[in-house]
Simulated scan of single mutants.
Amino acid sequence: MKIVAVTSCPSGVAHTYMAAEAIEKAAKAAGIGVKVETQGSIGIENELTASDISEADVVVITKDMDIKNTDRFKNSKVVKISIGDAIKKAPTLMQKIKDHVEKKNS
């Protein structure tokens, strides 16, 4: 199982990267492959490729700021969450995603 995520916050600094780290840590703990793109004050980092997106079971996007290039995800299952939930509730989110995908695939 694999997810990709895009994080961005209003200031484009700390919370963007805190959310990315929380998602990465929680996904790895849940046994989920993960790649996170950040859209911070210095621009897009760790940009998701078309292959990354097509291979992902779910795309997680923080919804506090407009994410650039969202048309990339038009054929993907997208989950939108707040930046705060990405930071504080990442383990719960990963478990819900894992349960959903496993149920869908069984």
Rank of each mutant, 00 (worst) to 15 (best):
I53E: 11
D57V: 03
D57W: 04
K74V: 14
Q95W: 04
S54W: 00
I87Q: 09
S54I: 07
T16A: 05
Q95T: 15
I81C: 08
N75S: 09
F73R: 11
K103C: 04
V60W: 06
I3M: 01
A19C: 03
I67K: 08
Y17H: 12
D85R: 15
I32W: 02
V78D: 10
Q39C: 05
A50T: 14
I83N: 10
D66Y: 05
P10I: 08
E37K: 01
V34D: 07
N46W: 05
T49N: 10
S8A: 15
M65K: 12
A30T: 00
K96T: 06
A26W: 04
A14S: 11
I83Y: 06
K103W: 07
T70W: 03
K2A: 01
S76Y: 04
I87C: 14
K80A: 11
V59H: 09
K68P: 00
G12K: 05
D85K: 14
H100T: 15
V59S: 06
A30E: 14
L48V: 06
A30V: 04
K103V: 08
H15R: 04
I81D: 11
I83R: 01
K77M: 11
R72K: 15
A30L: 01
N75G: 02
V79N: 04
G40A: 09
K74D: 14
S54D: 10
K104W: 09
D57T: 03
K68D: 09
A30W: 01
V60K: 03
T92K: 15
F73S: 13
S76P: 04
S41K: 05
K68F: 12
